[in-house]
Amino acid sequence: MDENLVFNYTISGDDFTRAGEASSDVKNKLKMMGLDNNIIRKVAIAMYEGEINMVIHANGGTITVEISADNIRMILADTGPGIADIDKAMEQGYSTAPEEVRALGFGAGMGLPNMKKYSDHMEIDSTVGIGTTVTMDIHI
């Protein structure tokens, strides 16, 4: 690939039933590009968790996916409440999600740990009251 491919998505924060459409679209694109199934699966899971997080916690946001010859980078940016304690948020089982989110099957405190587990590199830049940007790399 000579030039990076870039895909941009706007994630709506008010429709939980549509959460995941961007991740689904990326998964389809990667399949059409003929990438390895294991890599596609890692990208799909990591991005989907991030997309769900945006809808649950931040009233939506934007996702940029950059594909180069040897890396897939996902940048998830929101202007939500920010993460007060990132170390705590990275612990499995720790969640600030309200009860109604748990009733939907999420908010088990696995979102960020899952994103880290399935990506080769992850960075979280968050300021309370300003928002959060999560950058994940998955090597091809």
Partner: peptide, 29 residues
Amino acid sequence: SDVLAYADEHSALITGLCNPQVVRTAEML
């Protein structure tokens, strides 16, 4: 989120949760 953390591909998912995100989760995995 537990399914996303632990389930293998080519699995069956047994659940009592009934919303579109169950299918989305299955799709990703």
